[in-house]
């Protein structure tokens, strides 16, 4: 027993170390790519700073020196790396505030909106997928599969607009945008209710948009598992149908869904760009949409790095969760 346990935990530790190392390498690549990308895109940062206004050449030269743009690419690259580790991403063109401060202030709104939607879509979608598979080819299956398919194939910003027009503009049940009523001084419970009132439509949009993926992946994964012999064995043992499902079928079928959930959380920060823009939700997605319109290049550079880091981190989390849940993962 000790021997197997030890070799097993050693196998898992090795597996996780390998994944951590891989993630760090990817992060380094992203760091370099982010630098190169914005050197290609941004041919004249000083010019875009003044947006075509007339500025004396001497002033431009001074600014070039001040921003370090007269240095070689290598010097610029090392400055970029050094400052990135100091969480210094430069100054936003639009707000004149440090990019990092702008990003940090937008994070809570996005985490709240996309976090809630991600949890709801994962839970409801997975349950729907389980019901559809377990009762396959019944009306329940057809209703769930075709219903989720409809939302899955809809562009999320379009769905958002329809809900916005229907429930906010025509019916007036919900506010048309933002995170709280303008000039509201509510506190405590009233503040919470106000926030919930505002978050409802964008959260519903994102939940509906992501629901389908979970339902369809869960359904097909569970259908695969349902063909396995160990389910016949479980039934032969005299287990109730619902126990066979919940103890032997669903846990095994959920392994790919765990990965999907973790990966989707990686896109939580960046995935809501269009929907946040539709509902004027003051999060990272709207910040990105605004920065693209600028274009506010330092802001975009900072956001890209953050989004990439989030995707890499949650991918790593998915791998670790998988190794934790599936004993078969050993240094694979």
């Amino acid at each position: 027993m000790l021997a197997t346990e030890q070799s097993e935990s050693r196998g898992r530790t090795r597996f996780i170390l390998k994944k951590v190392l891989g993630s760090l390498l990817t992060l380094v690549f992203v760091l370099v790519f982010n630098f190169v990308l914005f050197r290609i895109v941004q041919s004249d940062p000083i010019g875009s700073l003044f947006r075509g206004r007339n500025v004396p050449a001497a002033k431009i030269a001074d600014l070039r020196t001040a921003f370090g743009l007269d240095e070689s690419l290598w010097v610029q690259f090392w400055a970029y790396v050094r400052q990135t580790f100091q969480l210094n991403f430069g100054i936003s063109y639009q707000s004149r505030q440090p990019v990092w401060n702008e990003i940090v202030s937008a994070i809570p709104a996005t985490v709240a909106l996309v976090g809630i939607s991600a949890v709801f879509s994962a839970v409801i979608g997975t349950i729907g997928g389980v019901i559809a598979a377990w009762r396959r080819n019944t009306w329940k299956d057809h209703a769930i599969t075709s219903g989720t398919m409809v939302f899955y194939s809809m562009p999320d910003f379009w769905l958002g607009m329809i809900l916005l027009v229907g429930f906010a503009v025509v019916l007036g049940w919900f506010p048309v945008g933002g995170m709280s009523d303008a000039g509201s001084t509510a506190t405590g419970l009233a503040l919470l209710l106000d926030r919930l009132h505002h978050i409802f439509l964008p959260a519903l949009t994102l939940t509906l948009a992501y629901l389908g993926e979970y339902a369809l992946v869960t359904r097909s994964s569970l259908l695969d598992v349902m063909g396995e012999d160990y389910l016949t064995v479980a039934r032969a043992k005299g287990l109730r149908d619902v126990v066979v499902r919940n103890r032997h079928a669903v846990p095994n079928a959920l392994l790919p869904v765990v990965t999907l959930t973790a990966i989707n959380f990686g896109f939580v920060l960046s995935g809501a760009i269009a929907v946040e823009a539709v509902f004027s939700w003051p999060g990272l997605g709207k910040a990105t949409a605004d920065a693209i319109r600028g274009p506010d290049l330092p802001m975009l550079q900072g956001l890209f790095l953050l989004f990439s880091a989030a995707v890499i981190f949650f991918n790593l989390l998915a791998d670790v969760a998988y190794a934790w849940l599936d004993p078969r993962v050993e240094g694979a």
């Binding site: 012999d229 016949t232 064995v233 032969a236 043992k237 005299g238 032997h248 078969r328």
Partner: peptide, 24 residues
């Protein structure tokens, strides 16, 4: 039927197949 299964009659399934749950 559930009461009969495994107490009256039990099946030895083929081990080469996936008769055992891989994650238990």
């Amino acid at each position: 039927l559930r009461a009969v299964r495994w107490t009256t009659g039990a099946i030895v399934f083929q081990g080469a197949l996936h008769a055992l749950n891989p994650v238990q």
